Measured scan of single mutants.
Amino acid sequence: MATGGRRGAAAAPLLVAVAALLLGAAGHLYPGEVCPGMDIRNNLTRLHELENCSVIEGHLQILLMFKTRPEDFRDLSFPKLIMITDYLLLFRVYGLESLKDLFPNLTVIRGSRLFFNYALVIFEMVHLKELGLYNLMNITRGSVRIEKNNELCYLATIDWSRILDSVEDNYIVLNKDDNEECGDICPGTAKGKTNCPATVINGQFVERCWTHSHCQKVCPTICKSHGCTAEGLCCHSECLGNCSQPDDPTKCVACRNFYLDGRCVETCPPPYYHFQDWRCVNFSFCQDLHHKCKNSRRQGCHQYVIHNNKCIPECPSGYTMNSSNLLCTPCLGPCPKVCHLLEGEKTIDSVTSAQELRGCTVINGSLIINIRGGNNLAAELEANLGLIEEISGYLKIRRSYALVSLSFFRKLRLIRGETLEIGNYSFYALDNQNLRQLWDWSKHNLTITQGKLFFHYNPKLCLSEIHKMEEVSGTKGRQERNDIALKTNGDQASCENELLKFSYIRTSFDKI
């Protein structure tokens, strides 16, 4: 039985969820670079991206490699990797027998973001014989899940209580170790020597080791999670996991709180800001991140802002960003909400898709409305799209047979046209069989910064309504002859009103 693990408890099935942008060198404390989270699957090609990484700022997932063999891993080693800020997950990587050479110096898994409450997941690794993470000293947050690894031993010899604050939620089941077939031998045991430290858990006094050649490092209890030197002297209180010299914040392997210019500090002093819960960055760093993602459509890219001495992905609820200094300031009234469309555009074809934009005031991208039916549609669209004030790209209304009016965009005031449909149009209306009105132009103002209007096959939309939009939106004169079809717009509506004058002759039985 794995020490510190839980057996036999019912657990939810383990679901495996399925960018080499360097964020800056980590400095003297770390020998390499800070790398983003990685999802490495199918083959070993991307694994080489770990070569210079000291910190993975995010998670590391290595999974679904069915053609790899043990010899493929023999020359692979990433000794610079010290810390993973989120979680480490391995799933069905064939041929991998140990992690001792792959990650010989991995010391800390912070667990800032977890995989279903777990910071370390080893699942269905069919050839893994031992973990071998002999320098792993601290899992700051989260638990361990090690399950269905039929060859995995050296679990009962690990004292997880020396690595985690609590072992109650560890789930370590259905491994070879369960069948008591392992016969784990710690260093020196074969020669009758006791080389590794022994600890007591559940009444068992057991030597602690990761492999037959690597003991588990056990520091004096007084050192807590700070770690200790090879001689057993406690590291500085700002260290986490390990250090090369005692009581020196510049000799830590990793930091308990924050890293700044080669030393570990309790908090980031001005003019620095907390970033990702582990390091200090200056304003320029946060500003660069903001600008890199301002026009990016890459998933996970955030326009970072500053709030409460932190550089964070977005302002919290009730705050909006001051564009001059990136500071989050309290909103006066309802907060603006910028919604970034991942692929640059979004099609609204149902109430469900409209709900995804609920509360958005600025759309960074283009909207395509293609709704053919739905219950209580006008009210639903207004509830979900009615706060949109600005669209950076274009607005396209296409084959939306259920629409009679666009009044559900009740606050839309600006279409920038930074991206144009077919390279020309910022407003595009095609084949809307029941569209009769755009907006009530006596109450609604709309500016279209650039781009043209396109109207074709809107049989109940009168040309007068379209011409009014040209005047109000500032697009009059931009359109070419064929942009607004004269014969297919309003051709099934009563669009022309003329005053009919009647004269009559009164007659009676005795007068003409």
Rank of each mutant, 00 (worst) to 15 (best):
W210N: 07
N195L: 10
I146N: 00
L89A: 01
C311A: 02
K193F: 02
E124Q: 04
K80M: 12
W278Y: 14
Y30T: 03
C328W: 00
N308H: 13
S237A: 13
N257V: 01
T211E: 15
H274N: 03
M38N: 09
R46L: 03
C255Q: 00
E231T: 09
D177H: 13
V305F: 10
D261C: 02
R113P: 02
Y273E: 00
E207A: 05
H28N: 14
T45W: 15
I56T: 01
Q287V: 10
H214N: 14
F103V: 02
L99F: 09
T320Y: 05
V34L: 08
D86T: 01
V55M: 10
V144W: 00
E124S: 06
E49I: 15
G32V: 12
G111C: 02
I62L: 05
S112E: 15
Q61S: 07
S237M: 06
W278Q: 03
I56N: 00
G300Y: 07
K224N: 12
A156L: 11
S77F: 15
D165M: 05
V121L: 03
T329M: 12
C35K: 00
L44T: 11
K310A: 09
M137K: 10
C234P: 02
L88N: 00
V281W: 00
F73G: 09
E57F: 04
Y319R: 03
G183D: 15
R46S: 12
L90A: 03
E168L: 12
C215L: 06
F66I: 14
G232A: 04
G142V: 01
C255F: 00
N42L: 05
C255K: 00
L332M: 12
R279L: 09
V55R: 02
E231P: 15
C268V: 00
K310T: 04
R41W: 10
S112P: 00
H274F: 15
L99Q: 00
I82D: 07
C301F: 04
T329F: 08
A230T: 05
G32Q: 10
V121G: 06
G232P: 05
C243R: 00
Q276I: 04
R46C: 15
R74Y: 10
R298E: 07
L152Y: 00
F116R: 08
R279V: 04
S296Y: 06
N202R: 06
F103H: 00
H48V: 13
Y134D: 11
A198T: 09
K129N: 06
K217Y: 09
L260I: 04
P330S: 09
S143W: 12
E147V: 13
N295Y: 13
I146A: 04
R263C: 02
N42H: 05
I222V: 15
L152K: 01
Y319S: 15
Y87Q: 00
P79R: 06
P246S: 03
H48E: 11
P330F: 05
L120H: 00
K224A: 10
K100L: 10
T320V: 11
Y272S: 13
S77H: 11
L240F: 03
E57V: 08
N149V: 02
H212D: 15
G333I: 08
V144S: 06
K80C: 10
R41H: 05
I146K: 00
S284M: 09
V34K: 10
D178G: 12
I84F: 00
R298H: 07
V200T: 12
P316L: 06
T189L: 12
S98R: 03
D288Y: 12
C239N: 00
C209Q: 02
L131R: 00
N150W: 05
P316H: 02
F285M: 08
H290F: 06
D248L: 07
H236P: 03
R41M: 03
C234V: 00
L233S: 12
D184Y: 09
P187A: 12
E180S: 08
L50E: 00
N308L: 08
K292L: 15
Y273A: 04
C219A: 02
I185N: 12
L155H: 15
G183R: 12
L327E: 06
N282R: 13
N149T: 10
T68D: 10
L99P: 01
C280Y: 01
N135Q: 12
E181R: 05
N322A: 13
G37D: 11
S213I: 09
P249S: 06
G227N: 02
C186T: 07
D247P: 01
D247R: 10
K176D: 05
E124K: 09
K129D: 06
A190C: 03
C186P: 00
D159W: 14
C311E: 01
D177S: 02
L50T: 03
L240Y: 11
I201K: 05
L90V: 12
G183C: 09
P187I: 13
L332Q: 04
W160C: 01
T85H: 03
E97A: 09
Y134P: 12
F258V: 12
H59F: 04
P79F: 04
K100A: 07
L102A: 03
K224P: 08
A190G: 08
A254K: 01
V281M: 02
T229Y: 02
T250R: 07
Q216K: 09
N149G: 03
F115T: 05
Q61V: 12
I158G: 02
D169K: 12
C228Y: 04
V144M: 10
T250F: 13
D75C: 04
D177Y: 12
N105F: 05
G142H: 01
M38Y: 11
R263Q: 03
H236F: 02
